[in-house]
Design a protein around this nucleic acid. Structure first.
Lengths: 368, 368
DNA sequence: GTGAAAGCGCTAACAG
DNA sequence: CTGTTAGCGCTTTCAC
């Protein structure tokens, strides 16, 4: 038996319940009883009643009535999956907050909300299609199932989509194939003959594209297939587990591409534990959304992942949509590449040196 | 000359402007014109007018009118500073989202917003004291100036404060002095004689407490003062810069406590560049809010920082406050300690070995 | 000290 | 195909 629906308690009900007026109740609950000089006894009775009846103020009512400042509120949101790496969400959040800070004026305030759905199940997210929630959203970290739903469902507010293409929507994407292709090239150039790629079980549009391009480039350039390792999730420990399993089965690799950067962290740990040296035994290239790659030991080569750049594009686009301007349906972002020590080219010398001369510091050499 | 204040455009104005009714305008702007069978020409005219007049829907009005489902919306927020490490915000956000997901019902939906202020300048944040914004908030990463303001200002909504004590408010804190004291003890036990501590220029209540307790314990136990290094910010590069400067001036240390974990990443990098070995030459203990400490090379000993535990406490407290329950004014959280390789005890042997036998793997031994 | 009344902006229901 | 009316929950103003 489901709990009976109980309609929200209003100030009027409290007022009727106590035999006072709604105005009195309101002034008490909004902490205005001092200036209104409500009798302390009344204040107490009202507080007690509100508490026992389970009163919850309706912010829409309050806001609507607040013509004192005539402040209008713009409600924005970032829609993302629970499973998405937090740094990505954090970047978008930060960028949006900065923009909002600049846009805010005395008569316009912004609220930035985050909505999270379970990857692949955005259709189960209730209230997503309500038109009374947001003025505009940034949507990211969806899986193909989500994209399919979104392509059909009519979101009742302007949206900028990050990292995938949805027909009829304003989309900001990584230049297709770039990350996967460059990563493959870097490993090939580093002399790898048996590279592997590791990705999470769930593939977003972006990660699927990276994987496919990596495969394709490798096949085209070397005629071989990469070893494909699949980890349960995107945490370092997931990558570590996947690689350990591969190793235990006797699998060997001399190069590794991790489609997201947190996976690289786990891989580093496993290599260290197994006594596999980077880059002498295995070259590693990752995706650099974390900003930590430079601080790995050895510093990790990254094809940066366009996240930061994508966010930088997306936020102004959202504001343009809010203003009713027309925007390009698609913006492509080419991520920067950072060559660091983890893919230092193998140069076996006469002595068979594993530590050739190589610049040690300041490895933040940006490509081209 | 400031731009003239322009009151918000309403559906009524658009209606009057075009000589149609407000209901017609409304149905078009809310995408209901199909079922209402509005003439295409009218739809176009209304759209054009809305666009040219700069119409922005008032969500409060929409929501208020939406009695179709009688869904009540609870607005929650996380208030944090721009300068706070994103992982901390992310943790709180995630925990709150999970809770909200569970609490949501057909007739109650939640919105989780993030508000950011500049560290130390929360008083400049407009709209913070408006009673028409949030039903409840989690407040974190404030500086002492902010705390002083908050102690006086009457926030018009329930709040849970993370990481500091504000009179009359529900606060969740790290057990005072614990992190600083244990960190000092760990370094002393590792045989350090000249330890240093590094912290950001801006000290929160929490980091100030860590620093003070570290100092105090060291003085008490060894009679010495630590070297105190101050970094510009909390990013790895800031820590790296601070330590490099110290080193360039001829400063030497044999132990390091970093009051936040991102600082440790930078320190690791510098040590590596300078050829300083961890833990043979310098023992390092950090704060473990990142979850990455285990993956450092060598794995970093952390006094975990109570963030995750604090968030776990704070979220239920917030919901209890929303229900009008009374809650304890203060909840203390004792963070776990993870002893790892970075503080492996120095045991100079006859041979002067720098690599004594030590468990290599699975260093996640939790204390007691 | 407190109540009555008005109205914020919007849309559902109904009437043409 | 479109207009009229009513009212969501709240707070402010004014009256007593």
């Amino acid at each position: 038996m489901k709990p009976a629906y109980r309609p929200p308690v209003t100030v009027h009900q409290i007022a009727r319940h106590l035999g006072v007026s709604a105005a009195t109740v309101s002034s008490v609950l909004a902490h205005r009883h001092v200036e209104r000089r409500i009798a302390p006894a009344t204040v107490e009775r009202i507080r007690a009643a509100a508490q026992s009846l389970g009163y919850i103020p309706n912010m829409a009512g309050r806001r609507l009535r607040a013509h004192r400042t005539a402040t209008r509120q713009i409600d924005l949101a970032i829609l993302t999956s629970f499973e998405a790496p937090l740094p990505l969400v954090g970047q978008a959040l930060h960028a949006l907050q900065r923009a909002v800070e600049v846009q805010s004026t005395a008569d316009t305030r912004y609220a930035v909300a985050i909505e999270m759905f379970h990857a692949g199940r955005i259709r189960e997210k209730t209230g997503l299609l309500d038109a009374d929630r947001y003025h505009g959203v940034i949507l990211t970290n969806t899986l193909p199932e989500d994209d399919r739903f979104l392509a059909e469902a009519a979101l009742p507010y302007p949206a900028v989509i990050l990292g995938r293409r949805i027909p009829g929507r304003c989309c900001v994407l990584e230049a297709p194939e770039f990350v996967g292709r460059r990563s493959a090239e870097i490993l090939i150039d580093a002399g790898c003959r048996a590279p592997a790629v590791i990705h999470g079980r769930l593939l977003t549009h972006t990660t699927a594209d990276r994987l496919a391009a990596f495969r394709h480039t490798l096949r085209e350039r070397t005629g071989r297939e990469p070893t494909v390792l699949v980890s349960e999730g995107l945490q370092p420990r997931h990558a570590a587990a996947a690689f350990e399993q591969h190793w235990a089965r006797g699998g060997r690799v001399d190069g590794l591409f991790t489609v997201t950067d947190s996976l690289a962290i786990g891989a580093y740990r496993v290599f260290r534990d197994l006594g596999v040296r980077i880059p002498a035994d295995v070259a590693v290239v990752g995706v650099g959304d974390y900003e930590l790659a430079e601080f790995f030991a050895p510093p990790l080569t990254t094809v940066a992942g366009a996240n930061e750049a994508m966010v930088a594009e997306a936020v102004p686009l959202l504001f343009r949509l809010l203003r009713g301007e027309t925007v390009p349906p698609e913006v492509l972002v080419v991520p920067p590449v950072f060559l660091r020590e983890s893919t230092r080219r193998h140069r076996p010398t006469a002595i068979g040196a594993t530590k050739p001369a190589y610049p040690k510091r300041r490895s933040k050499r940006r490509e081209r």
